[in-house]
Computed example of a mutant assay.
Amino acid sequence: MAHYTIALTGGIASGKSEVERRFRALGVYVADADVAAREVVEPGTPGLAEVVEAFGPDVLGADGGMDRPAMRRRVFADATARLRLEAIIHPRVRAALRTACEAAPGSYAIAAIPLFAEAGRDAYAAWVDRVLVVDVPVELQLERLLRRDGIDETLAWRMIRAQATREQRLSVADDIITNDGPLDALDPAVATLHARYLALAHATPRPL
């Protein structure tokens, strides 16, 4: 069981998934907050029931699940709605990530948490040992988001500005990968960090 946990974070369209993929290829267990966020509001879950209670039945799609595109448009246009949704989902996601990481094989595990800086280190202090930030200039972040999601620039800026600023993310970082170049540049950066994390995990006593 892993006894050392790295939080992997970064702004939207920063390249977190590419970094995550490389750690997985090295055999590191990664618990993904985006996956957990979907699971905690699947049909039949208490999480989805609370979302419906807060926002009404029109948040549901034809399949009985949450209509994610419609909800995304709603919460990025209304800060109060976004905070209400986060208050329902985020505590459940944090609990799921902690359980998964503590049960993971290997010396250390990674929790991929896009909104780590927004919650603050205190929210994860009991089980996250180190924070890795994937950093990218905001202009490149916007360009990638427009290309990836096919959305208009107004919505893209709302999504970026709804998150922590670049400076706020960097302020919580123990380690930084700057992802403003070709993707193959990530390989040596991840390999170097993997060796560092193995050494840190081995030097950290296992809890009794």
Rank of each mutant, 00 (worst) to 15 (best):
A100S: 15
V128F: 12
R68H: 04
I177L: 11
H194F: 14
P188C: 11
C101K: 08
I177Q: 03
A201L: 08
F116I: 07
A49W: 02
Q163D: 08
L140H: 11
V51L: 11
G47Q: 07
N179W: 13
A156T: 08
A126E: 15
R84T: 15
A199T: 15
E20T: 10
A123K: 07
I160S: 00
S14H: 01
R166E: 11
G27Q: 09
A119I: 00
I110M: 15
D34I: 01
A203W: 06
A36P: 00
G150L: 12
V41R: 03
G15S: 07
T178Y: 13
G61E: 05
P182D: 10
V134E: 06
M66R: 00
D32L: 04
S107C: 14
G106R: 05
R196K: 15
I6A: 01
T9D: 02
S17R: 09
L146I: 14
Y4S: 01
A79I: 06
K16Y: 13
L155A: 12
T45H: 04
G181Y: 06
G61T: 05
R121P: 11
H90S: 03
E39W: 06
P91M: 08
A87S: 14
L193S: 10
A100C: 10
E102A: 11
L208W: 02
L85D: 10
R74W: 13
A191H: 14
R169T: 09
L97Y: 07
L48H: 07
V52I: 13
R73I: 01
E50M: 03
A173H: 02
I88C: 03
P105T: 12
V138H: 07
D149M: 09
I89P: 02
E42L: 09
G11Y: 01
R38A: 08
I176Y: 03
R144Q: 13
V19N: 03
A2E: 00
T165N: 12
A95E: 15
D63L: 05
D34G: 00
W157V: 10
E53R: 14
L132P: 09
D135H: 10
A185H: 14
A185N: 14
R169V: 06
L146R: 08
V93R: 05
V19S: 02
G11K: 00
L198P: 12
T99M: 03
L142Q: 11
L132F: 12
E20M: 07
S171M: 04
V138K: 13
D67Y: 02
P91Q: 05
A25T: 01
R92C: 04
F76D: 00
I88K: 09
L155S: 07
A191P: 08
